[in-house]
């Protein structure tokens, strides 16, 4: 177990290094560099501005040197300076991450609160009408695109009843209002995850329901409710928690679209803006940051999995 954790920990920087190379190569292949984006295209093109920007970005240096400067800075914890937005990424990134994180964590809570009960009821009432209905809702959840749901929720009430559903971002100065603002994108974002979790919860509970120890529990006359809660729910939680861990990293990716629709100043909207402006310093920083996050979560999930279920041995 210890050896496994150590091996995985060593792989994290190696993986990050290779990702950094791939990202760097891709971003330098971007047509139209930041200099052009900042200083205007043909016609209004400003040569002096162009040169200043290129110098600030280090674009006049050889590619290998550019890479090395960037990579060693990242390892020191300096995500870089965006000459287009004239900000140090480190100063901006935490506030952005925090906004995305609030939506992510709330969405994860909704995912669990909606997904697990649906899966559990579906498994217990397996084969009944309610099972079919809930399964259909689950598959609907993973099928219907979240940006369509968000669009309908914003525009239909506005069209028919002139109601504004999505209020502006207010921040924690008004806690209740803020929760309301965050809850809407979070719940829309949670729907597909809830559908996935419901399906997994159902199948893993069904598997446990047909196992020998559940039959024994029923045979010795244990009440159904106690059987389900004590003997079925607990073992199937292992699978479910693994998926929840992975879902958390998916949520960060999914919030890109929610942030764009609801105009939330998070990491996702930042990436989109950075792409539009060809501001690859920001894109590179965010990819590295999120990959690091993703690696850590996966590592934690795997370790927790092995710890909870001793049958699992990693070699």
């Amino acid at each position: 177990m210890q050896a496994y954790i150590i091996r995985r920990l060593i792989l994290v920087p190696v993986t990050l290094f290779i990702i950094s190379v791939i990202v760097f190569v891709f971003m330098r292949a971007v047509p139209g560099d930041a200099g052009v984006a900042k200083c205007g295209a043909a016609g209004s093109f400003d040569q002096k501005c162009f040169e200043v920007v290129r110098q600030e970005l280090g674009l006049d240096k050889p590619k290998i040197e550019q890479y090395w400067i960037w990579f060693s800075d990242i390892f020191k914890g300096d995500l870089g300076f965006s000459p287009l937005q004239r900000i140090h990424i480190n100063e901006e990134v935490w506030g952005r991450l925090w906004n995305t994180f609030q939506i992510g964590i709330l969405s994860l809570i909704f995912t669990v609160l909606i997904g697990i009960p649906i899966g559990a009821i579906s498994a217990i009432r397996s084969g009944k009408l309610i099972d079919y209905l809930l399964r259909f809702f689950a598959i609907l959840g993973i099928s219907v695109p979240n940006f369509w749901i968000a669009t309908l929720i914003i525009f239909l009430p506005a069209y028919f009843w002139q109601i504004r559903v999505a209020p502006d971002w207010v921040g924690w100065e008004e806690p209740l209002m803020h929760l309301r603002v965050v809850a809407l994108p979070a719940i829309i974002l949670s729907l597909s995850g809830a559908g996935a979790i419901a399906r997994i919860a159902r199948s893993s509970m069904l598997e446990v329901l047909s196992s020998d120890f559940v039959r024994t529990a029923r045979a010795k006359g244990l009440r159904e409710r106690v059987t389900v809660i004590r003997h079925v729910f607990r073992p199937s939680m292992i699978t479910i928690f693994t998926i929840i861990g992975l879902q958390f990293s998916l949520v960060l990716g999914g919030s890109v679209i929610m942030e764009a629709i609801f105009g939330i100043q998070g990491i996702g909207l930042w990436v989109i803006e950075a792409i539009a402006a060809r501001d690859f310093v920001i894109i590179q920083a965010i990819v590295m940051l999120l990959s690091f996050w993703f690696l850590l979560i996966t590592l934690l999930v795997d370790v927790a999995y092995a710890w909870v279920d001793p049958r699992i041995r990693y070699n």
Partner: peptide
Amino acid sequence: AVPQILWLLMLTTA
């Protein structure tokens, strides 16, 4: 290790 959405964003940009 890189979220899918980031691959998609990077590739379509590049």
